[in-house]
Amino acid sequence: MIKSRKMEVFAYIVIGLIGISIILPFLLLLMSSFTDEISITRNGYSFFPKEFSLNAYAYLGKSSATIVRAYLVSIFVTVVGTVWGLVMTVLCAYPLSRRELPGRKVMNFYVFFTMLFNGGLVPTYLTYTQYFHIKNTIWALLVPNILVQAYNVMLAKTFFQTSIPVEVLEAARVDGARETTIFGKVVLPLAKPIFATLGLFISVTYWNDWTNGLIYLTDSKLFSLQNLLNRMTSNIQFLSSTSLGGNVTAADLPSQTVRMAIAIIGVVPMLAAYPFFQKYFVKGIALGAVKG
């Protein structure tokens, strides 16, 4: 666009203000978690706390067994889920990208249709609990709904179709290469960008997912970090009430600050990792709308 100085200043002001509105809630969370409980009771959560205190973190330290466990569950689920989901997604997408594959249209429709129509929560819940018995198992956090997503398959399919020239595949075939060789030697080396993008999307999905735990877990031993946070919104005493909690009692719970401190602990990994992957994430989003 022919850019004008006035418009640019206006853009800085508007987007800058929005940016501030995005940062401020995190700042409030952070400052509140470092405030003394009594000061919060008197003045509420504040950006400029009157009295600093590390009590909330000290309290969380005492029940660290539960928190560390939830962290480990989250890390395990994110790593295993991402690798597993990524492999299945790419393996599913590549055949769909090969125009000469007999039956490709039917297979494509089979995947795409799941985006248009689904059974919803009740039948899914009954299928997984009655037939596959995943309630209160680690599978509950890995498998339902997020392992392979049709949207990601379509994204990968489009990538293969647009980024790998048909002539290259053709040439390999004329040379007598088998399909497995073509995939391993020609396609995979060119597929790094899509692995990066999808890996990022899938791992963020796993790290942030709390619905599967909410639906399929009643045993708090398997709670991921998000499930722990979710449980604590309704029951702030949860940390002291679990058997894993160690030697803490509900009576001395600085509940208003602990609430904020646990949220900080939950959000820090994402905020810490974000600067390193934001570039790829923004690029991945820009791939834009996908068609069937």
Partner: peptide, 14 residues
Amino acid sequence: LISMVIISYLVYGF
């Protein structure tokens, strides 16, 4: 990139 659980804490702060 932030889960709705964390966002509910952010909203609660206000």
